[in-house]
């Protein structure tokens, strides 16, 4: 059976409450998932309280303040701090998003809970293993496969054909969508998931690519593509406002059309 509960080694242990500034004018609690691979301890939720008057506006600002001033051992991936690199993807109050694009004051009242992207093997703290997702991305061959002689300059494309790539080339591969999808949780070893399928569609839609049929062959499988049940968690989570669910539906239509 699909395992709906967390395995025993993944259940949360007793967390630690870190000292908070006593003179905070705008205190706000952040509950953060911690896991230390060097110890045998279970993962735990640590509590940090920051003064929002002294903190930047984004969730990422709060995490960086924790690292700078409270606990330098907190681990996460981050780079660009403006939604271009896709590194700081995590689960914020139960929904996936990029910490750098999520405003603290849009998170309502109460503590802000930060956990890693769901259903991943955790390397440390907020860093999950993306190995399978990268392998699946490699599998759809995300590069142009054009037949015929090399052109002397770039491969040309009409403005209308170029427009077909809008909505998929902007993806930053943060995997907020894939790890929000219950179907990917239960069958992520065989189902490609929304992020990879959005990219698969990006190459199906490219007028300069000559291997559409082969690409469709590789997707025509009850598990690789058709585990998508249009649950819509992917589109709801995408921090770039893209629509993986729609791209998957269009891929299914292409496959139905050639029948």
């Amino acid at each position: 059976m699909a395992e709906f509960r967390l395995p025993p080694n993944s259940r949360l242990g007793q967390g630690k409450t870190w000292d908070s500034p006593s003179d905070a004018k705008k205190p706000r609690e952040f509950r953060v998932y911690r896991f230390d691979p060097a110890s045998d301890d279970h993962p735990r939720m640590d509590s940090f309280t920051l003064d929002l008057d002294e903190t930047g506006p984004m969730v990422l600002d709060a995490i960086l303040k924790i690292i700078d001033e409270v606990d330098p051992s907190l681990a996460l991936r981050r780079s660009c701090r403006e939604g271009v690199c896709g590194s700081c993807a995590m689960n914020i109050n139960g929904k996936n998003g990029l910490a750098c694009l999520t405003h603290i004051d849009e998170q309502g009242d109460g503590p802000i809970t930060l956990t890693p992207l769901p259903h991943l093997e955790i390397i440390k703290d907020l860093v999950g293993s993306l190995e399978t997702l990268y392998a699946q991305y490699e599998m759809i061959e995300p590069w142009m496969k054009a037949d015929g002689p090399e052109p002397e300059r770039e491969r040309l494309q009409t403005p209308e054909d170029r427009e077909k790539l809008n909505g998929s080339y902007e993806c930053v591969l943060c995997f907020c969508c894939a790890t929000a999808c219950p179907s990917y949780w239960w069958n992520g070893d065989k189902y490609l998931g929304p992020a990879v399928l959005l990219q698969a569609h990006r190459w199906l839609a490219d007028s300069r690519d000559d291997h559409t049929g082969e690409r469709l062959d590789a997707l025509d499988d009850p598990f690789r593509l058709y585990r998508c049940h249009t649950i819509m968690n992917c589109t709801s989570a995408c921090p770039k406002g893209l629509n993986p669910a729609k791209a998957i539906a269009e891929t299914k239509r292409k496959l139905a059309q050639r029948r």
Binding site: F4, R5, L6, P7, N9, S10, L12, Y33, F35, P37, H42, P43, N91, N93, G94, K95, T115, P116, L117, P118, H119, L120, E121, I122, I123, G128, S129, A180, P182, W185, N233
Partner: peptide, 11 residues
């Protein structure tokens, strides 16, 4: 390695 929370935690 532990598995991150999923069904229990997703809104």
């Amino acid at each position: 390695r532990p598995l991150s929370p999923h069904l229990q935690h997703y809104r």
